[in-house]
Design a protein around this nucleic acid. Sequence first.
RNA 1: GCUGCUGUAGCUCAGAGGUAGAGCACUCCCUUGGUAAGGGAGAGGUCGAGAGUUCGAUUCUCUCCAGCAGCACCA
Length: 663
Amino acid sequence: MHDGQPQISLTFPDGTNRSFPSGVTPADVAAAISTSLRKKAISAHVDGQHWDLQWPIDADAEIAINTMKDAAPALELIRHDLAHIMARAVQENWPEVNVTIGPVIDKGWYYDFDRAEPFTPEDLGAIEKKMKEIINARDPVTTEVWDRARAVAHYEANDEPYKVELVNSIPGDEPLRMYWHGNWQDLCRGPHLQHTGQVPADSWKLMSVAGAYWRGDSSRQMLQRIYGVAFQSREELKSYLHFLEEAERRDHRKLGREMDLFHMQEEAPGQVFWHPDGWTIYTTLQDYMRRKQRAGGYREINTPQVVDRKLWEASGHWDKYQHHMFVVEVDESRDGEDDDASVRNTDQTRINALKPMNCPCHVQVFNQGLKSYRDLPLRLAEFGSCARFEPSGALHGIMRVRGFTQDDAHIFCSEDQIQHECARFIAFLAEVYRELGFDDFEIRFATRPEKRVGSDESWDYVEGALEKAIEAVGRDYTLEPGDGAFYGPKLDFYLTDAIGRVWQCGTFQVDPNLPERLGATYIGADGEKHRPYMLHRAVLGSFERFIGILIENWEGKLPFWLAPRQVVVASITSEADDYVQEVVGRLQAAGVRAESDTRNEKINYKVREHSVGKVPVILACGAREVADRSVSVRRLGQKQTATATLDEITAELARSATPPDLL
RNA sequence: GCUGCUGUAGCUCAGAGGUAGAGCACUCCCUUGGUAAGGGAGAGGUCGAGAGUUCGAUUCUCUCCAGCAGCACCA
């Protein structure tokens, strides 16, 4: 900085500005304000861009200096520096390991390595130890801009092929930036902290190691990815680890087994064996949806499971979706007496597929008989059982399965009815979610993708209709440009569960394509044939997945009307056994799912067992209750008990057992 | 599908080259007990499937199946 150097003007968040020599760094700027700010500074925002304290500024700009009090940049820097510190620790422990990339992600970071042997949990411990040494060393972080040839030469000399590929893939007009932590060097966009000691020593943790493809491409090298989480304080780390434990406690696979709701087994991977209590939840939910849909103007239908390939060829699924379909070959020449599959007559083999979706079948229903514009909108609903051959690694409990049932419906309508049907659907979905205990949901609006069919005018119209529909019901949405289906835009509906996790359940998709492929038409007021639009829509998504979400949301303690076992009436002494049976009979007659427990066990034992089993209400009966025809009421999660007369409790529980739409 | 890990009693898990063990659950007996586990006894397993090495495999090797984590997938 000498006299005569060009000056630039920097504007601070409070609106004041000061002049500095061109090439000034945020570190200099902070120092010019105060020595304490220079010490506390971690990075800056220059014209909104996250800026390293060491990077020069050479034009007028708005500047804000960040300290650890600015949570967003602080977390980004901490996590990003930890990624580098981890990579350095790995290479110091195992110099032969190749480094690749290590970005910041939600809650932490990861770094991908190429190493012949897998990292073990013990290795993670060794890496953490080394990382702590690096942090304690308070190594200064320095940076330089290199030219491409130097960077390539450097990485070729150091035998780092992934870095060479990265350098070559960075656009030519972007500067290549090198960073050093002590002697360790990495190619990095930055920014970074000023020295490794600025990373909090005890608010991060290495979590796991797993495989990941180089550059996310399943045809390329599988690398080893180490995940870490990091926060600004130890308390935040602890509360995150607590959240993970909470999620584990709620795991529907564990609760499903403990509550005896369902099981799965090797012979039918990705498919659910529902037990009586689980099926009670399922049918209660399905009965509810059936009533809601009937009241909402839908007509329920049912269509075949096994359908000839001809229909799938016509719908386009055979081309685009075949690898996800269960294909069934049937030898039509067999007469049913020959059970030897090896004597199949291939000339007469007919190829069918289990339906992965209901839409083509629904068009078949629409296509029967001539439809008039007066029939529109025609809302056809089906609890459609579908089979999809999901990749084995994608399966997850009852949440991601190969056999499932959707609360599916297709609305056949004219173009000018789309907006109204969309608004009507959002209101319908909001009511269902609210009644099921999810008060809030989020809408994401996915618009036209690069690869698509249909004219721009048609996309303009349909996207406009959806947007107006969302506004008409007074909802916010987030835009996801380019994420729509190839045939039309869609809305996806996300709900948030009790511990803040977000689940996509509902969907609403506009489709002019399938009616065209399958030749759906209706006669308009003008007497001519017209092509209907088809609106694919679901509220729950699939029953299997939604029940999984319900179990995890409520930690198995479902609302009374959905609880499979609502009441257990337990005897305290065997002298109350007859009375217990009478109480159970009264409750069952009132529509409550009640059962008795007159086993030869103490009341403590029974209370514990049914509490663990998540039964919402336990009614205990001993000599006193028999004498005055009452029950002792204990509710799940409450320690104290209350006494109620048999009449009172029957009326109250009958009301609690009533589904929300019938109250 | 890919990488890694795992598969032993209904559940949770221990174990070792010489044909297996705990706790809970289950059955029976004693106990009639007032709100989260009363006491005793008993029964229960082709150690995921197949092949190989070995005198001998549930244990070691290979293949397959399934599960778990992540990645990829979720027109």
